[in-house]
Amino acid sequence: MTSTLSTETTMSVPTMPEPVISLTGARKTYHTGDIEFEALRGIDCRIYPGEYVAIVGPSGSGKSTLMNILGCLDVLTSGQYVLAGEDVSTMDEVALASARNRRIGFVFQQFHLLASLTALGNVELPLVYAGVAPAERRERALRALDRVGLADKARNHPGQLSGGQQQRVAIARALVTEPAIVLADEPTGNLDSHSTADVLGMIDDLHAEGATIVLITHESDVAARAGTVYNVTDGQFVGAGTEIAK
């Protein structure tokens, strides 16, 4: 694996580490009755630790499919996906669940917090499935909440929090497992402009602290904050990743 990856990537920058995400010839075909739909038509992509990548594209372009693939929520029809050194494309459902748990922190457009649990309970949830003991779970969840500035809201239920606060709880939940990547799918789609700035600022901070971030959006001003932007159209990247000058 090292040899195939190094040919392209380590030539220009010899000290560059291994990619967190490595997609090779990624294809995804959906079958609905007799109709066949190619959502991804051969995507190659390397994302390295500490990168902040935005994936943009109109609806129906295949970016949601790409997000599902990257998040191990769905599997490729053909091609290879290596996530943090593990070949995800050959994994079964149980191994995929484990990979999601250990490697990926999700931030969803609709927050997806459980109303019956407190903020703390929601942040603890990934650790529950990781089999972490309650005491350690609580400590790590509180630390993650502190990191998003909501330590004082730990006992509140989602219904008692504003949209921006809810999304920050979701970010804390994404961070608590110390994942290889944070995968944010339209994280500001349900927020007002103030909260949007708040949440995007927080993602900037995470990036500054060294987190690897993949953000899926259709808004160009949101994408403009990323280091690299990939444009998806008709299931393919249009051109190479665009480096954004900071």
């Binding site: 459902e93 149980v94 669940a97 999601r100 997806h112 459980l114 990934p126 499935y129 990781a130």
Partner: peptide, 11 residues
């Protein structure tokens, strides 16, 4: 959501 966060089918 639980599945996305790492719940296996058996869980």
């Amino acid at each position: 959501l639980r599945k996305a966060l790492g719940a296996a089918p058996a869980n």
